[in-house]
């Protein structure tokens, strides 16, 4: 397997992407392309990049261990090898259920939760397969509840709760119409319309809201809706996903 590393902007991508069927990946400030066959002269001339050889299973080696967040919480599927993190969370997802831990918003929410001293209740609103709620329970928060509008997500979340041996109450609930469960900490990894309803329901019980599932351009409007809360910490990714801890 050949790896081509180069630097460039959108204008360069206009020229090379049509020549690279496998596409390119961002690796910090470089672009990387992989190919089983040698790169063409045209691609090499356009990019001026460096080529080296990597093992054919480089992707599996990189991606089969789940993720470790903050050196504390490891999230992996039942098929991945153990991460060795102090807190290991094993989750499975099926169908359209969200929240395996692979997505940056899930990872950023965990990172923000890790900065809080555990103690008190947590509600994971739009919990998907239960990943964040399970992490919260393993960190010592209690009681922990999780709701999601997708029945299969809750079905899998129940399995994941049992798999991880934690006490988390999960239920099907449509946050667009049903009552919003409140707690000392709200985990809301969901699109803006959900934040709008949650923000309208927040009362004195809520001390922190971990907000994600939004992109940079949506941040100002979402934050404005959480009246009385200020941004205590903000995280972001290069592809514009945002996670915030709002505290009051």
């Amino acid at each position: 397997m050949y790896r081509l590393t180069f630097r460039g902007d959108e204008d360069l991508l206009d020229a090379v992407l049509p020549l690279l069927p496998g596409g390119v990946r961002e690796d910090e400030d470089a672009l990387v392309a992989y190919s089983g066959a040698p790169f063409s002269d045209a691609v090499l001339a356009l990019t001026g990049g460096a080529v080296d050889e990597v093992p054919a299973d480089w992707k599996q080696r990189k991606m089969s261990a789940g993720v470790v967040i903050g050196g504390v919480v490891g999230i992996r599927s039942p098929f991945d090898r153990e991460s060795g993190a102090p807190i290991e969370v094993v989750v499975e997802r099926r169908g359209s259920a969200f929240g395996s831990g692979s997505h940056p918003t899930t990872q950023m929410c965990v990172a923000l939760l890790l900065e809080l001293e555990p103690g008190g209740s947590v509600a994971d609103l739009g919990c998907g397969v239960g990943t964040l709620a399970i992490v919260a329970a393993k960190l010592g928060w209690a009681p922990v509840v999780g709701v999601d509008r997708v029945p299969v997500a809750i079905e899998v979340a129940r399995e994941n709760v049992e798999r991880n041996g934690v006490d988390v109450d999960v239920a099907v609930s449509d946050l667009a119409v049903d009552d919003i469960p409140l707690a000392n900490v709200l985990l809301v990894n969901a699109p803006p319309p959900v934040h709008e309803r949650v923000a309208a329901a927040v009362d004195d019980r809520v001390r922190h809201v971990i907000v994600s599932g939004i992109v940079a351009e949506e941040m100002e409007d979402v934050v404005r809706r959480y009246t009385g809360f200020k941004i205590a910490k903000a995280l972001g990714t290069e592809d514009e996903w945002i996670a915030l801890r709002l505290s009051c």
Binding site: P18, P21, R25, S102, H103
Partner: peptide
């Protein structure tokens, strides 16, 4: 096309009009 997670790959090219790139992730 089969596109690996995390890669940005061109899938359609209409010369002079647009190119559509896709980046699939797990979710």
């Amino acid at each position: 096309r089969l596109v690996e997670f995390g890669a940005r790959a061109a899938i359609l090219l209409a010369p002079g009009l647009f190119r559509l790139d896709l980046t699939p992730q797990e979710e």
